[in-house]
Amino acid sequence: MKAVRFYGTEDVRVEHVPDPEILNPRDAIVKVTTTAICGSDLHIYGGYIPTMEKGDVLGHEFMGEVVEVGRDNHRLQVGDRVVVPFTIACGRCYFCKEQLWSLCDNSNPNAWMAEKLYGYSASGLFGYSHMYGGYPGGQAEFVRVPFADVGPLKVPAATLVNAPPPTDLSMRMPAPARRAM
């Protein structure tokens, strides 16, 4: 598949990488239909985020279609359309039970790195350095989503997702503002 990969300060390339695979029972694989470049991707692009490595796949704002689910994922089915949050959450630790998903105790396999730097770790993140898990991100054709029975929000079938965004910005403004232009 094609993916956006980090190589260094202001050096990002689109390259072919192996397709992701289910690694854990609660995983899902999502075929990305829409992805975004976030302002915080610019921190990475500018070289300000430690523990980025050459070849890391970027992207933490994406949505798509579920194409594969792990054996313990009973919430998603192949064909579901989902919006995937930036933060990866296990859903069962103290913080997840309090709905403080971004503080999940269990989703960052490299929590010790963040603890060394900041004293505490946060949850694992998509495409946002090894300190937050080293998870490949969503600026790619496919993404492996860990704990996919917790984070992803299902998009109702009736919602039109892939309509082209209005090119004229004034179309998105409320009517009074449009009249003022």
Binding site: N24, N106, P109, F147
Partner: peptide, 22 residues
């Protein structure tokens, strides 16, 4: 030992040990 205990917590709470690679 600290990492091992973290794995115990992950296994018993989340049912799996998280990983980004194989």
């Amino acid at each position: 030992i600290r990492e091992d205990l973290r794995h115990l917590k992950q296994l018993l709470e989340a049912g799996e040990i998280p990983r980004a690679t194989g």
